[in-house]
Amino acid sequence: MTPKKNTSSFPIDMETIDNIDKTLHDPSRLKIIAYLYSLKETDFTYLKIQTGFSWGRLASHLDKLQEVGYVELKKELIQKKRSSKKTPRTYISLTNEGRRAFDRYRNSMQQLLQLGSEKSEG
């Protein structure tokens, strides 16, 4: 038996659900974006410590976020003290598109949760 769709008794706009950003809906990526939202710029070490993710996990999620244009990675060679070699350092920042996407995601989720709670109260 297939459940009947009753949009009037649970008035969630299906379009809102469809429009939820799948990239951001992943909890790990959401956590990364949430940190980047309060930051102007950071590096891998900081994000790794704050999120508690492994290098691999962090790198793969940042790859996905970079692919969709939500984060920007900028590489620079920095001179370390007591070393003749320069070390690569990657600076990570949220793009304007990423910031807007995060705002949209928050609004969609708030909208859904509000509608859900209105239904349960009703």
Binding site: Y37, S38, L39, K40, E41, D43, Y46, Y91
Partner: peptide, 12 residues
Amino acid sequence: TYPRIGYFKVKT
């Protein structure tokens, strides 16, 4: 600071 907790610049 940065060698201990990583580099970061807070959004002001």
